[in-house]
């Protein structure tokens, strides 16, 4: 284990990821180095196919890099066993997906209760109460007993965020969180996401939407698997001021 700087939440150094596709080796990520600080919104920006989601998957511990190191919260995660990676995701990571990935057979509340009960090992009334609180926080009070198919895209994404937050993770990873949403709903979701970046927590958003760079404290530009540019923005604009 290699402890990083005390104010560093994620530190990636010289990370590469390659896939063998038939006889061809695809280099999805090449020598990526980046850092994510707490209380900040970080955006990975790039066109489709540039490796953004692959990068997110490495940080989220659902894929492992070919070379390089990923230090999260002071601990290296590459090379961890599957069970340790599961624990890592349990304790550190909240995922928000472009296509929401709610469990279709569970209601909005149950999607959250599932995580509380099954991942956080909570039980009883505490589970119901916490789930309702989380849904209320994302503006879904009164929609708790709706199945995903009964909710709009924005509502599904809000459930997805509430579900991610239910574990109280230190890092929230969002993969094109507004990709499937209209402008107004997209902004609402961004509000929710950016509000998470406080109290030592961080939000990492990958997107191809350049406008989203304006709400980030730090932006990494990714092209063909490489970080080609890094910009810092000590005073990002508020989501309400954002337009695209």
């Amino acid at each position: 284990m290699n402890a990083g700087a005390s104010d560093l939440l994620i530190g990636i150094k010289n990370m590469s990821k390659s896939y063998q596709m038939g006889e061809v080796v695809v280099h999805a990520l090449k020598d990526v180095t980046l850092t994510v600080e707490p209380n900040q919104v970080t955006v990975i920006l790039g066109p489709s196919g540039c490796g953004k989601t692959t990068l997110l998957n490495q940080i989220g511990g659902i894929d492992s890099p070919t070379t390089g190191t990923i230090v999260v919260n002071g601990s290296e995660i590459q090379g961890l066993s599957q069970s340790k990676l599961t624990k890592y995701r349990q304790e550190n990571i909240g995922f928000v997906f472009q296509f929401f990935n709610l469990i279709p057979n569970l209601t909005a509340r149950e999607n959250i209760e599932f995580v509380l009960e099954y991942v956080m090992n909570m039980s009883g009334k505490e589970v119901h109460k916490k789930a309702e609180e989380l849904l209320a926080n994302v503006g879904l009070a009164g929609r708790e007993d709706h199945y995903p198919y009964q909710l709009s895209g924005g509502e599904q994404q809000r459930v997805s965020i509430a579900r991610a937050l239910s574990k109280d993770p230190r890092i929230l990873l969002a993969d094109e969180p507004t990709g499937e949403l209209d402008y107004v709903t997209g902004k609402m979701i961004l509000e929710l996401l950016t509000s998470f970046a406080e109290g030592g927590r961080a939000v990492l958003i990958v997107t191809h939407n350049k406008e989203l760079a304006k709400i980030a404290h730090k932006v990494f530009y990714l092209r063909d698997g490489k970080v080609v540019k890094e910009t810092k923005n000590p005073n990002p604009i508020k989501v309400s001021q954002l337009e695209w």
Binding site: F97, F99, F100, P104, E110, F114, H128, Y147, Y149, G153
Partner: peptide, 29 residues
């Protein structure tokens, strides 16, 4: 087709069951 977006309905029994609070989510699922 978009895989992650829920479109599937859950059947009549699923509708009846959605208000059931006492049952663990794992059993419901």
């Amino acid at each position: 087709k978009r895989e992650g977006i829920s479109k599937k309905k859950v059947g009549r029994l699923g509708v009846y069951m959605k208000g059931v609070r006492w049952m663990p989510v794992s059993v419901k699922l």
